[in-house]
């Protein structure tokens, strides 16, 4: 455990990163990001392709070790903690490229999360499957429970990705583009689901390209560009920020008045 305290932003934090750097060979994917997420908050994380959003999410979930920097869950330093233990501390994530267990049923996929997640050690298999059924009901996958995961549509697989993560009973849920490729109607359903999950007390960090979704559910938005945090604040303020518009559209548009990123 590090002797350093979590960044104090006036409130307690659910998850926080300080001075996180991730270097892949010559590429600085994340370049000194400090970011704190409050309990119960919905933070939108946006930025152009290659900005380092997914990498930052991976650092927070323990699937990527940072080159330097520190990550906390509450006041526990998790920088060197293995992924499976971070899950048991209450952090779950989804993958942008969905990773279903293709040869298991939808129900079994979700049950794995319940069998091994935060409460996995202290409940029976029967209880875990019951918990999985509740999650399936909640995300609207109950009718598909007995199908093979490989048979689901893209929207279904995105939903399954969320369901598996939810089954681990997270306190913090890190979502990587769970709405990419969905129809507007499916996007609305996904937004309703995320609001519902947040209302049950789960802190959300949402990486998303679908601006309608980000603007619709985020209480705060943080913008990454070339591995750096270039802006954060209320959604409306952030998307009007010239720096942000420049990052997305180039310098030419930054001064203009019609900057909807």
């Amino acid at each position: 455990m590090s002797a350093m305290a979590a960044p104090d932003l006036g409130t307690s934090t659910a998850i926080a990163a300080r001075d996180v750097v991730v270097r892949f060979g010559g590429l600085l994917a994340v370049n000194g990001v400090t970011l704190s997420v409050a309990p119960g908050e919905i933070l939108g994380l946006i930025g152009p392709n290659g900005a380092g959003k997914t990498t930052l999410l991976s650092v927070m979930s323990g699937t990527q070790r940072p080159t330097s920097g520190i990550v906390w869950i509450g006041d526990t330093d998790i920088t060197r903690v293995p992924t499976y233990r971070i899950v048991r501390l209450g952090v779950a994530r989804t993958f942008q490229v969905v990773k279903p267990f293709a040869n298991l049923t939808v129900r079994e996929n979700v049950a794995v999360g319940a069998l091994y997640g935060r409460h996995g050690n202290d409940r029976s298999s029967r209880a875990a499957f019951a918990a999985a059924d509740m999650v399936l009901e909640r995300v609207g996958l109950a009718p598909e429970a007995k199908r093979q995961a490989s048979e689901l549509t893209l929207a279904g697989r995105k939903r399954l990705e969320i369901a598996k993560a939810l089954a681990t009973d997270p306190r913090v849920l890190l979502l990587d583009e769970v709405m990419a490729g969905l129809t507007p109607h499916e996007t609305d359903r996904a937004m309703d689901l995320l609001r519902d999950v947040n209302a049950s007390g789960v802190t959300l960090v949402v990486v998303e390209h679908v601006m309608r979704a980000i603007m619709g559910i985020s209480q705060r938005v943080a913008v990454l560009h070339q591995g750096r945090l270039i802006a954060q604040g209320l959604p409306q303020a952030v998307v009007a920020d010239p720096l942000v518009i420049e990052a997305y559209l180039g310098k030419r548009y930054a001064g203009g008045s019609h900057g909807h990123a």
């Binding site: 699937t63 899950v87 993958f95 990773k99 267990f101 935060r118 681990t168």
Partner: peptide, 9 residues
Amino acid sequence: EAAAVLGIN
């Protein structure tokens, strides 16, 4: 990797 993020050692 998907197994690990569900808490499997």
